[in-house]
Design a protein around this nucleic acid. Sequence first.
DNA 1: AATGGTGATGTGCGCGGAAACATAAGGTAG
DNA 2: CTACCTTATGTTTCCGCGCACATCACCATT
Lengths: 355, 355
Amino acid sequence: MSIPKNVRIKDIARLAGVSVGTVDRVLHNRGRVSEDALQKVTAVMEQIDYRPNLIARTLGSNKSYRIAALIPDPTVDPYWAQSNQGLIQATAEWAQYGIDINLYFFDLFDKESFTKKGQEVFEAKPDGILAAPIFFDEALLLFKLFKKQGIPYVLFNTNIPEVNPLSFIGQNLFQSGRVGAELMHFGLHQGGLLAVLHIDEDIHNSVHLLEKEKGFREYFKEKSKLAFTIQDFNLSPNDTSFKKNFNLLLDDTQLKGIFVSTSNGTSVAASYLENHGKKNIRLIGYDMLNENLNYLKSGVIDFLINQNPKRQVSVGISHLANYLIFKKRPPETELFPLEIITQQNLDSYLGSGIH
Amino acid sequence: MSIPKNVRIKDIARLAGVSVGTVDRVLHNRGRVSEDALQKVTAVMEQIDYRPNLIARTLGSNKSYRIAALIPDPTVDPYWAQSNQGLIQATAEWAQYGIDINLYFFDLFDKESFTKKGQEVFEAKPDGILAAPIFFDEALLLFKLFKKQGIPYVLFNTNIPEVNPLSFIGQNLFQSGRVGAELMHFGLHQGGLLAVLHIDEDIHNSVHLLEKEKGFREYFKEKSKLAFTIQDFNLSPNDTSFKKNFNLLLDDTQLKGIFVSTSNGTSVAASYLENHGKKNIRLIGYDMLNENLNYLKSGVIDFLINQNPKRQVSVGISHLANYLIFKKRPPETELFPLEIITQQNLDSYLGSGIH
DNA sequence: AATGGTGATGTGCGCGGAAACATAAGGTAG
DNA sequence: CTACCTTATGTTTCCGCGCACATCACCATT
């Protein structure tokens, strides 16, 4: 076994009969290199697998980068609070590599606030951007601007393929609906009514919630031999008729299961279900928010599908940082596994450092 | 917002009024420092959050470390083949940090082979060891030896707390059995017979398989309102009576579900179940081996619990490498999440880079 | 008093790459 | 022909740390 002592720029220079400066210029196409020298260097390069020492590169350059993070205000929403946790963790992790993360929080229910904070990001001229572009039209405009400026951005949670982000991080929502359906189906041995609830204060992400519903419906159409009716409800917890409508639904003797498409909605549904006292209704929802975990432990919620907002963010930052420091291109889209959380595996998820 | 320009050793030296050499000696408790100087330096250290620049440290030292990996021969077993994948990946990942990984494969069914390969590792005097110590007694002897030598070792898959590894990476097997039971229970609406199968060519890890069974049984005792009989079987696929026994089990009209405690056994059980043609028997097993995945896709297997051998190894190497290079102590035990794999979330797991 | 030992402290080099800087050759305009 | 610019190329410095080595003060031994 030969020891492939890592090739250095110095080695290439020696082999090509030029100086390290020239090799450096060739490697970074900085020009100012004669045809002759370029030939010699590329010839050597082709024969040798040169992999620059990233450690040395980072140390030398000693640049510092500013990344702007544009997410909904974490103080008013537990889901986005988890994203923010990811940011805090990433800040600590990347500080010593000269990555500085600046936070821009916008109001989850106010499109104008998104645009305003987006403007602020623009004026700050960061070296990279991580964002949850939950308002489609506004985000479209904003990121076309960033594209023109050549500032790289990574999107998470919600994709906007039209603006061609450096990378998108999230989940396959359609498939996520199918997983929900599968879990639901697994526990049922007779037909009946299934409810798909979109409980949200706002309708901005209705398109995405609908994806989950479509997957949920498709699975049942495709797989189930039993007869199920699937009804969907768009509810806002602020609505006055919310309580009435919900209890009406729970009164239906045919009701067998509830699938909630939002993380915050999951615990709302759970609280109603618990108060109503009805047993044997399956409840499947999203995400490891504290309230959800309590209902999972007490058995009101059967399954949670984990979207892992914290890790989405931390991977997003990591992609940006690697791109800025090491010029390493991240995957165009990174779809997270659709993790299934139950009463019994919950602790193992909480305990593992990854979450 | 003040910019906390990263503190360097030089800064500490300046603030404490000593030279960088002295600071260095204090930081690494190398001694040869006067009480006076030590006071001054520690005083500064307490006021300042010094975090050494790992980049510079690695670059400068430019040491190379040899890690020995002691695992069962991956060519004869798909489970250990996945572990080996993790090793291959880790080798590439850590090469540029000067980490050299040497492989030592032993025969999964031969204790002497384990001891022999262990001896070889010992003679090679590596800087660190990653091992799957599946033969308890032999491993006990071996690692006491390494402990005496002061060579750090990380264990995975199977723990031997008696030898105090630098870190153990694996899963809570008891809880894993509970998860299996929970999933089983979720799909059943009437009592009957449940079988726990330990299908293994060998009995070496019987203790660990038993942990899973204990968890499985406890869950049902604790949670189920229906009447279940749980029977356990120790089977070896090489055994002549294997086929007969298995079909006898499947003929039992009371049989409602099968829980297989081993990854290789899972597909064996699945093949018998499929051939027998009996429907509505739940099958739950372990790990994303190719054969298992096929049976999961075709619906013979309902759930797989993922032990993630590949990631266990890659995390193990990462812990060792960080310890050797950066002196960063890994957690004493790192228990992986008990991931639940189904037909519908399978692709999301295969697609995500983590697995 | 000269020598040597010891412990405390400071200095300087090297790691690999990036980039500023220095040098040398060649060409052009006045 | 000189002054000056351009382009190709080589040389040096810097990044932060670890470590080998140099230095120095102090004390003991002969």
